[in-house]
Design a binder for these strands. Structure first.
Length: 252
DNA sequence: AAGCCAACCTGGACGC
DNA sequence: TGCGTCCAGGTTGGCT
């Protein structure tokens, strides 16, 4: 790593330019890892932890490329390559911590089993059995499963044919097990399609490519459109301050 | 003590 | 054209 520039430090957790410089300039990027929605880049004794919030994205560009609006952090590597954190709403996070204290970092320490590559069925069964909350809330609880956001929670529930407001503890175990499988299928499907880029065009990969999973969404953002299984009109409601989309006939 | 809700911030879509 | 309102992928802290 050759240089670090913080252009805007006021993110959810403020960027501390000095800890970035001290931690990564002159160090070599060794490992790349992910837990839930947190990205981790290991630089030996220091590790960078990133979260993209709702509107964040990374861009890998040559240093001379002009900065897009809301470019907050520039990480310049040898060989004229630069990684940029761009996040209009500034809900993201970009911190550097000593690697030995990485697991103590509060947001990471609280995470549950990784939804993508962990064995989630037992954890989801246990969490659902003990919670009277809507099953959608359990899916979004990062301390139960790490990595599921509102889009994929809605989609997994649609695939498993479970109503998002169904009290978690009222679901038969077999249905929760089916939900666990649906979570896996939705996440792997979304990754295979390159992610979900909605009409506002917020998400793109580091090369700037939009994802194609939006066309496969069964319910999210489809209020009033017909359910592809039964033709009923997809409904939208708000619960706990978040939109939920579901088919009123298929999902019970 | 679990769970709801506002707050954080900006941009885009929409209605008038 | 312009202004006001509403909405959005997430997380946290305060309140009940």
């Amino acid at each position: 790593m050759v240089a670090v520039e913080a252009r805007e430090v006021r993110l959810r957790a403020g960027i501390d330019p000095e800890s970035w410089r001290a931690g990564v300039v002159g160090a070599t990027l060794g490992t790349l890892d992910r837990r839930g929605k947190y990205l981790m880049a290991g630089f030996g004794r220091s590790t960078a932890v990133l979260h993209l919030g709702m509107s964040g994205r990374l861009a890998l560009v040559r240093p001379e490329v002009p900065c897009a609006a809301h470019t907050h952090l520039r990480l310049r590597f040898e060989g004229a390559i630069e990684l940029r954190l761009i996040d209009p709403r500034r809900f993201g996070m970009a911190v550097v911590v000593p690697t030995e204290r990485l697991t103590d970092l509060a947001p990471l320490a609280a995470l549950g089993i990784d939804a993508l590559d962990g064995d989630i069925e037992a954890g989801l069964l246990a969490a659902a059995a003990r919670s009277a909350s809507p099953i959608r809330s359990v899916l979004l609880d990062q301390t139960v499963l790490a990595g599921i956001g509102n889009i994929y929670a809605n989609e997994a529930l649609a695939r498993a044919r479970i109503h998002p407001l169904r009290p978690a503890s009222s679901l038969a175990r077999a249905r929760v097990a089916r939900l666990a499988a649906a979570v896996k299928a939705v996440l792997h499907g979304a990754i295979a399609a390159g992610g979900t880029t909605l009409e506002d065009g917020g998400f793109s990969d580091a090369a700037g490519n939009a994802g194609n999973f939006a066309v496969q969404l069964a319910v999210y953002g489809r209020e009033g459109l017909p359910c592809e299984r039964c033709g009923s009109s997809i409904r939208r409601r708000v619960a706990s301050g978040r939109s939920l989309f579901f088919c009123p006939r298929c999902q019970r």
